[in-house]
Amino acid sequence: ERVRARYDYEAQNEDELSFKKGDIITVLEKDDGWWKGRNGKEGLFPSNYVEELE
């Protein structure tokens, strides 16, 4: 599954994923509120910062 970033997100910890608004992220795992994904790097990000691609 792929999602698009709705906002910029700056990683707060080294296991998190940074991205810019409009970036496409491949979702690897979904957990409550935090998803694991890849966009060149791999890490956790808040699920409310992304939207599913149509």
Rank of each mutant, 00 (worst) to 15 (best):
E1Q: 12
E1Y: 14
E1R: 11
R2G: 06
R2T: 13
R2I: 13
R2Q: 15
V3L: 06
V3M: 10
V3Q: 04
V3G: 03
R4F: 08
R4E: 07
R4Y: 07
R4T: 09
R4L: 10
A5M: 02
A5I: 02
A5S: 02
A5H: 01
R6T: 10
R6P: 05
R6E: 06
R6H: 05
Y7S: 07
Y7K: 14
Y7P: 01
Y7W: 15
D8T: 08
D8H: 04
Y9F: 06
Y9C: 05
Y9P: 00
Y9M: 03
E10T: 14
E10R: 10
E10N: 12
E10L: 11
A11R: 02
A11T: 04
A11W: 01
A11F: 03
A11Y: 01
A11L: 05
A11E: 05
A11K: 05
A11M: 05
A11N: 03
Q12M: 11
Q12H: 10
Q12E: 10
Q12A: 10
Q12K: 14
N13P: 01
N13M: 07
N13C: 12
N13W: 06
N13I: 01
N13S: 13
N13H: 11
E14R: 09
E14Y: 09
D15S: 14
E16V: 03
E16Q: 14
L17T: 01
L17G: 00
L17N: 03
L17R: 01
S18P: 04
S18D: 06
S18E: 04
F19M: 06
F19P: 00
F19I: 06
F19T: 00
K20H: 09
K20I: 07
K20N: 08
K21R: 10
K21V: 10
K21N: 04
K21W: 05
K21G: 06
G22M: 04
G22W: 05
G22Y: 05
D23Y: 03
D23M: 06
D23W: 07
I24R: 06
I24M: 08
I24Y: 10
I24G: 02
I24K: 03
I25D: 00
I25A: 04
I25Q: 02
I25L: 09
I25S: 03
I25K: 01
T26Q: 11
T26E: 13
T26C: 12
T26S: 08
T26V: 12
V27M: 03
V27E: 00
L28A: 04
L28T: 09
L28H: 04
L28S: 04
E29S: 15
E29C: 14
E29K: 12
K30Y: 08
K30V: 07
K30M: 06
D31S: 15
D31L: 15
D31N: 15
D31P: 08
D31V: 15
D32Q: 12
D32A: 12
D32I: 12
D32P: 07
G33F: 15
W34N: 04
W35T: 06
W35P: 01
W35Y: 08
W35M: 08
W35I: 08
W35E: 02
K36L: 15
K36Q: 05
K36N: 05
G37I: 00
G37Q: 00
G37A: 00
G37E: 04
G37C: 02
R38K: 13
R38L: 09
R38H: 13
R38M: 11
N39A: 11
N39D: 05
N39H: 14
N39L: 15
G40V: 11
G40H: 12
G40P: 04
K41W: 07
K41R: 13
K41H: 10
K41I: 07
K41Q: 11
K41F: 09
K41G: 10
E42Q: 09
E42A: 09
E42L: 08
E42P: 05
G43P: 01
G43K: 00
G43E: 00
G43W: 00
L44F: 15
L44W: 15
F45S: 02
F45E: 04
F45D: 01
F45P: 01
F45A: 00
P46K: 06
P46Y: 05
P46W: 05
P46M: 08
P46A: 04
S47F: 09
S47T: 07
S47G: 10
N48H: 14
N48C: 15
Y49H: 09
Y49R: 07
Y49C: 11
Y49A: 13
V50K: 05
V50C: 05
E51H: 07
E51T: 10
E51S: 08
E51K: 04
E52R: 13
E52T: 13
E52I: 13
L53R: 04
L53G: 05
L53W: 12
L53K: 05
E54C: 12
E54H: 12
